[in-house]
Every structure is written in structure tokens, then in C-alpha cells.
Design a protein around this nucleic acid. Sequence first.
DNA 1: CATCACGGTATCCTTTTTGACACTATATAC
DNA 2: GTATATAGTGTCAAAAAGGATACCGTGATG
Lengths: 119, 119
Amino acid sequence: MPRVRHKTFDCSAGCPVEGVLNLIDGKWKGVILYHLMSGTLRFNEIRRKLVNVTQRMLTNQLRELEADGLIIRKVYAEVPPKVEYSLSERGRSLEPVINALKAWGDANLAVDKIDVEAA
Amino acid sequence: MPRVRHKTFDCSAGCPVEGVLNLIDGKWKGVILYHLMSGTLRFNEIRRKLVNVTQRMLTNQLRELEADGLIIRKVYAEVPPKVEYSLSERGRSLEPVINALKAWGDANLAVDKIDVEAA
DNA sequence: CATCACGGTATCCTTTTTGACACTATATAC
DNA sequence: GTATATAGTGTCAAAAAGGATACCGTGATG
């Protein structure tokens, strides 16, 4: 499992920018946060939204988000297991950031263009 | 709001979010963009602002940003060499995004020791 | 002649991240 | 008694990212 992502952020002026990026990059974190903005989701609900994610990766990403205090993991003592993920206060405060990302993406990552570059 | 019409690669609704993240993650890209928001900079000026970056990494990051159309590289035929980097139109349009990142970082990563201790 | 500044390349190596795939527990349904 | 669903773990391997270090060309400076 990828270990401690948090070292100390000793950097200069642009540092906060990198700091946030360290929290939300990782192949699936952005999308996970985005989906959780719409409400609580269970493990497999998230999995179905992130089409190609493996269980291991999803678990990893969720654990890291949890460790960074952005999401809350709630386990129900049931069988079959039930685990719900939701945004914490801190996670919810990221909403403007995620929205800015989404807005720019929508405006500047037109599908045609991606097609051309990917081809 | 333009929406994704067709899946080029498996992404669901949160895709644009990941798309932008793919452009601006990389260990130094966020900070580079941040610094270029204040104006044109030469290679070594950027280098001095990113204290621990190696030449190789800085070159890499700048080339990727250039390839993604976010910055412009202008070479002067002089000796010693002079190369100026500045934001493109597209890069400048990222300003709200970078600002959102910076704002959140300033507000939530102020002293990261608090993270550890308070949690 | 030797050295510095500039903006890089070229090589090699280590660390980090991601992926494939197999395995687990248990209650319920068939 | 076999299969299903859930939410995971464990192990190994590949790929991507990042780092260390050395080198290049040239004109001016000492």
C-alpha cells in the first residue's frame, strides 16, 4: 500500500498549490471527490462509476482520502458488508476547487480535441 | 454547460476533473503555472523559485506544459542562451483554477503540523 | 588559458504508482 | 450444497515518475 503521502510541505510561494494537488491527484481521487459531492455512496456504487478501477486501487484511494481527512468512512456491522463514504467538512470545502476544475475541463477539454491527440 | 458527448476513454461524469488534473499534476507544474501568472520568466529564474528542482525535471515539466499548450517558449538566438517562458491564452485561462487551489491551500494547509496534531 | 553563465541533453538508477489476479468472510437465496 | 453479494486483502510485476550526475557549445571575463 502506498505509504504516507504527507511529508512536510516546506516550499516557497506556490506551495499551497502543490499542497492541494498532492491531496487530490492520484488517478481517481478527483473523480471520487466529484461524485461524493452529490452525496454519500457505497463502495461498489463508486466502483461502478469509475469504470476501470480495480478494487485494490479504489480501496487505496479511499484510504488516502480518508487519511487526509477529506472523506468519512462509515462501516455498518452487517452481512453482506455495508460501507458508506461521504465528504467530511473539509472535503466539502473543496467544492469550489473541484468545480473550478470541472468548469475548466468542460470548457477546454473538448472531446474532439482529446480524440485528435489520443489518436 | 458543454457536456461530454462521447467517451473517448472510459470516464464518467467526473472526467473533466481528471482531465485537468492530468495537465497540472506532475511534481512542479502547479507551482510553475502559479509563478508564470505573475509574468514571463527565464529558465533559471524559474529554477531559482523551485528550490529543489533539477534541470532535467524542470525541462521535462516545461516541455509537457508546452506540449499541452499551456505555456509558450520563446528562444532568443543569443549567447549565452536566453529562453523565456510565459502563459499562453489557454494557460492564462487556468487562472481561476490555480487561484482556487491556492486559496484552499492557504486556508487549509496553513501549517500542516496542525493536520497531524489536531487530527 | 581557464572559468563562468545559460539552457539545455544523455545515461543510469531508485522510488512511487498502478495493474493483474487470486483469496477471504458470512448471511441469504436457490 | 452451491452460488451470490459486499467490501475488502495479499502478493507480485510492470510502468511511470523522479533524481543524480556528467556533459555540450559559446561568448565574455580574468
